[in-house]
């Protein structure tokens, strides 16, 4: 029950977010769908031990969240709730793959940020024994690939959530239609989305009615009760489909659904898509964090 209500509220909330009025919301949906796909494609194209090069990609969700004025806390919470599957599969990596892949010495890190000389002067380095290699951290390949999986998860799921929160489902469908996704599938998606609200509502009313008469609000129902309830819901759904069809026929439906929508893939859309794609390619080709790190360490010492 809580399940039903929460899901409904969740979808409703995303739906509300997607009807926001920022320029990002008003951008032609094709630009956003394309950019999201390119983003996801580049992110997953890295090898499984990649971490550093994934970091720059965070700029996309960060900037998009800001531009679209989306509630960061809500989306992060949603993402964390979704994490278990990736986590449980990913957590096997550290168990299976124990080869040491990265070895970081604390001395180096300390040196690189430029306080070594200071410490050296007081001779502290010798005292704490760092120079003899005690402060070395080793990370196995498994942990690295696990971290990489989790980062991929955050980036890809984040991108999908941002897409739906800035675009709205109907507009995503419109973009898909323009991308020549077959008509029956688009109609199917639109109908599904429209009646999802109606049916979840209907289902939750049925479940509530049962709960109120079993005086046990917490327990799930028994199978013997579940089957007829689902069956009943299904029958009602079939009846509803019939009524909808009748309503469509009354207004001249003859098997085709057409919509009039004005779309405009203009300069703004081109810039948006091209700009992000360019950035993603740069991130894919050049190891920005390492370059930056080298430059910084060079600069400090």
């Amino acid at each position: 029950m809580a399940n039903l209500q929460n899901n409904l509220l969740d979808i409703f909330y995303i739906d509300t977010l997607s009807s926001g009025g920022t320029w990002l919301h008003n951008l032609d949906p094709r630009a956003k769908v394309m950019t999201t796909l390119i983003f996801v494609g580049t992110v997953v194209s890295f090898g499984k031990y990649e971490i550093a090069m994934l970091i720059p990609f965070l700029i996309y969700p960060a900037v998009m969240l800001a531009w679209a004025e989306l509630p960061v806390g809500y989306l992060v919470k949603k993402m964390v709730l979704l994490m278990p599957f990736a986590f449980f599969i990913g957590i096997f990596n550290p168990l299976m793959d124990r080869e040491i892949l990265v070895r970081i010495s604390c001395v180096d890190v300390i040196e690189s940020i430029g306080i070594t000389k200071l410490i050296d002067i007081i001779g502290l380095l010798d005292i704490i024994g760092l120079k003899n290699g005690i402060g070395i951290i080793e990370i196995s390949g498994g942990w690295i690939s696990f971290l990489s999986i989790m980062m991929r998860f955050c980036l890809t799921v984040g991108a999908a959530l941002i897409l739906i929160c800035t675009t709205g489902f109907d507009s995503v469908c419109l973009a898909l239609q323009k991308f020549k996704v077959p008509g029956p599938f688009i109609v199917q998606l639109i109908f599904l989305y429209r009646y999802m609200f109606v049916l979840i509502d209907e289902a939750s009313r049925m479940v509530r009615a049962r709960q109120l008469r079993t005086f046990d609000a917490r327990a799930n129902m028994k199978f013997s009760m579940f089957a007829p309830m689902i069956g009943q819901l299904l029958l009602r759904t079939l009846d509803r489909a019939q009524r909808i069809h009748l309503a469509m026929c009354c207004r001249g439906f003859d098997g085709h659904i057409q919509m009039i929508r004005k779309t405009d893939f203009g300069i703004q859309e081109t810039l948006f898509t091209a700009g992000w794609s360019f950035l993603f390619i740069i991130f894919r080709l050049y190891n920005i964090p390492v370059k930056l790190g080298e430059w910084i360490t060079k600069f400090l010492l």
Binding site: V187, Q188, F191, Y195, I200, T237, A241
Partner: peptide
């Protein structure tokens, strides 16, 4: 057409 749409929503619910 409406039938498959609404049944999709049914599965969802």
């Amino acid at each position: 057409i409406p039938l498959m749409g609404v049944l999709g929503a049914f599965i969802f619910a």
